[in-house]
Design a protein around this nucleic acid. Structure first.
Length: 220
DNA sequence: GCGACAG
DNA sequence: ATCTTGTCGC
């Protein structure tokens, strides 16, 4: 069962939110994860306005890529969309959904960045830390600089901030735009990229995020 | 200083 | 995120 730690009060202003990120950032741990048999995909879909959102989580058996558990939570956004402060908008319903899972996944595959973030604390770090589960971020758009990787599946180049490697631009399909992988919590960058490649036998995005995305749309 | 900025 | 036609490829 997944429990959510109460590490901070929920901020109501951007300044407070940034302060929370700076305070939690030192708590992120990079370590080799235990064997990964199941992986959760997390995604949020939006309804008509931009006030109601639907958080969807699916848990996949990594060997077969079949869905073994899932949860959907509908909620109202309590924080505006601000680049860099994504977690304060999407994490609340995602955490509620995670708590409703019957199967505890070995890793959370988040739709967005981990430490490849301006303050090194993206959505994946936030979710990993509050649940104390290994987590990684797989974004469709980069927030940090990088050089284009080779054209073949598996090719990658570093995502860097101040010359430091904070993630990788990873080509999951030959000839297709890369995805942007970074550590969220309790994982290594290499393990994160290995997992992403295992989750992308057919498409650019991981099966985990694809199944979560589909589930969220249906519930819209 | 100004603009751009995960979903 | 979401709004959308046709088009290319497996």
């Amino acid at each position: 069962m997944i429990t959510v730690r109460d590490l901070h009060p929920w901020p109501s202003t951007e300044a407070e939110a940034e302060a929370v990120q700076r305070r939690l950032r030192p708590l992120v741990r990079v370590e080799e994860p235990a064997e990964i048999r199941t992986a959760a995909g997390l995604d949020v879909a939006y309804r008509e306005d931009s006030d109601e959102l639907v958080a969807a989580v699916t848990v996949l058996d990594v060997a077969t890529l079949s869905v073994v558990d899932s949860a959907v939570v509908r909620d109202r956004a309590r924080f505006p969309y601000v680049p860099g402060l994504f977690a304060f908008r999407e994490a609340p319903p995602l955490l509620t959904a995670l708590q409703r899972l019957a199967v505890t996944p070995d890793v959370l595959v988040c739709d967005g960045q981990g430490v490849a973030h301006p303050r090194r604390f993206g959505l994946a770090c936030h979710l990993g830390l509050l649940t104390d589960l290994p987590s990684i971020g797989v974004g469709k758009t980069p927030m940090t600089r990088f050089d284009p990787p080779g054209e073949h599946r598996g090719d990658w180049t570093p995502l860097e901030v101040d010359g430091e490697e904070v993630g990788r631009a990873l080509r999951t399909r030959t000839g297709v735009k890369p995805v942007f992988v970074s550590v969220g919590h309790r994982c290594t960058l290499q393990a994160a990229c290995d997992l992403v490649l295992r989750l992308t036998p057919k498409y650019r995005l991981p099966e985990t995020t694809r199944t979560a995305d589909h589930l969220g749309r249906q519930s819209t």
